[in-house]
Amino acid sequence: MTYSSFLVSEFLVLWRRKQDVFNALLFFVIVVVLFPIGINSSPEFLAPAAAGIVWCATVLAILMAVEGMFKEDYHDGSLEQLVVSGLSLPLLILLKIVAQWLTVVLPLLLMMPLLSEMLYLPSSGFWVLTMTLLVGTPSLFFIGVIGSALTVSIKQGAMLVMLLILPFYLPVIIFSTLAVKASQAGLPYSGLLAMLLAISLLSLVISPFMTAIVVKASVN
C-alpha cells in the first residue's frame, strides 16, 4: 500500500457509500429549514441570523459524518492494517480527513447559494460565509476526528462524540458568525478569517498525531 493508493481507495469507499454523504447533506438542509419554521420566517430575523443557522447546521452535519469515520474500519480490521502498514499513521489519517472533507464540504458549498437565498442572506454576507466555511470547516474535521477515534470501540458512541467535541467547536462558530456579522455591518472581517485559518492550522498540526495515538491504543 502506498499513500496514493490509500487515498484512491478512500475515495472509492466514499463513492460506494454515497448514500451516507447524501444523508449528511439532507440532514444539513433539514436543520437549516427548522429555523425559519421553528422561530421566525421574516427576512428581518433571518438575514442577520443566517450565518449562525448555517454554521450550526454545518457543525451538526460534519459531526454526523465524522463520528462514524473509523467505525467500519475498526470492525472489519482495516484500521489495524493501517497501524501495521509501515506507513506513517498520522499522514494516513490526514489523507482520510482530506477525502472526507472534500466529499462532505464541497457539496455543502455547492448548496450554499440556494440556502442563502432561502435565508435572505445578502450577497456580500454570502461570500464571507462561504469563505468562513472554506477556512473553518477543516478545523471541525481535525478536532472531530480525535473524538471519533476516542469512541471507536464504544457501541453507542455518537452521543459521546457530540458531548466531547461540541465544546471545541464553539470558537469556530463564534469567529465565523462574527465575521459575517462584521461584513454585514461594513466592518473589517479579515482578522476573524485569519483567526479561523489559525485554528485550522493549529488543529492540522495537533490532530493527526493525537488521533494516531488514540487509534494505536484502540486497536491493541
Binding site: 478536532i143 480525535i146 473524538g147 476516542l150 466531547l164 465544546p167 471545541f168 464553539l170 470558537p171 485554528i199 493549529l202 495537533i206 493525537m210 495515538i213 488514540v214
Partner: peptide, 15 residues
C-alpha cells in the same frame, strides 16, 4: 489526549 487537546483549546475558547 482529551485533556491535552482541551488545554490547547482553552485559550482559543477564552479569546
Amino acid at each position: 489526549v482529551i485533556s491535552v487537546v482541551g488545554l490547547i483549546n482553552l485559550p482559543v475558547i477564552k479569546y
